[in-house]
């Protein structure tokens, strides 16, 4: 069976404490190049705005990016809130960026974030190709199940 790649909606967001935006601009351009529709809700997004946006846009994927070093801390809080909303229990949600302030120690936060409910974690040692492959695979998967 030939899989048809489906365009899906990706919601790109940062977390409440993170004011960086180049990472979000980059992700938006990258996801658009992969053929997807992007809702970029920007930096310093409070948890309730993130959840309201997810409920409103019903994204096929939520991409959270944080580079200020608090991402591991904020990420756990955010995913707990997202997963406790009945509409968002199964939504694919990934997080990436510079997630801790400890340089190489950042990789240690990955397990915590996965346990808390993220579908994938891309810390800053992961090549961007890994993220692209994840999105492509998700696109194929969505095509099968859609």
């Amino acid at each position: 069976m030939e899989l048809e790649k489906r365009e899906f909606t990706v919601l790109v967001s940062s977390v409440a404490s993170d004011s960086h935006t180049w990472n979000l601009v980059f992700l938006q351009l990258l996801l658009e190049e992969l053929g997807h529709r992007v809702v970029n809700i920007g930096a310093c997004v409070p948890d309730d705005l993130l959840i309201a946006s997810c409920v409103r846009h019903r994204p096929d994927l939520v991409v959270i990016s944080s580079v200020n070093g608090h991402g591991h801390h904020d990420g756990v809080r955010v995913i707990n809130e997202l997963r406790s909303h009945p509409d968002l229990i199964g939504t694919p949600v990934v997080i990436g960026g510079k997630l801790g302030i400890g340089g190489v120690d950042n990789a240690r936060h990955t397990d915590d974030l996965l346990r808390a409910g993220f579908d994938a974690v891309f810390d800053d040692s992961a090549p961007i190709a890994a993220f692209r492959e994840y999105v492509d695979a998700l696109g194929a998967l969505t095509a099968v199940t859609a």
Partner: peptide, 23 residues
């Protein structure tokens, strides 16, 4: 730090109490 910047002083206090280093 970023918490104080956005007015999340409760979050900053919690981090201090838990011994989490802020930026």
């Amino acid at each position: 730090d970023s918490y104080t910047r956005v007015g999340a002083d409760g979050e900053a206090r919690r981090a201090l109490a838990e011994g989490v280093a802020l930026n």
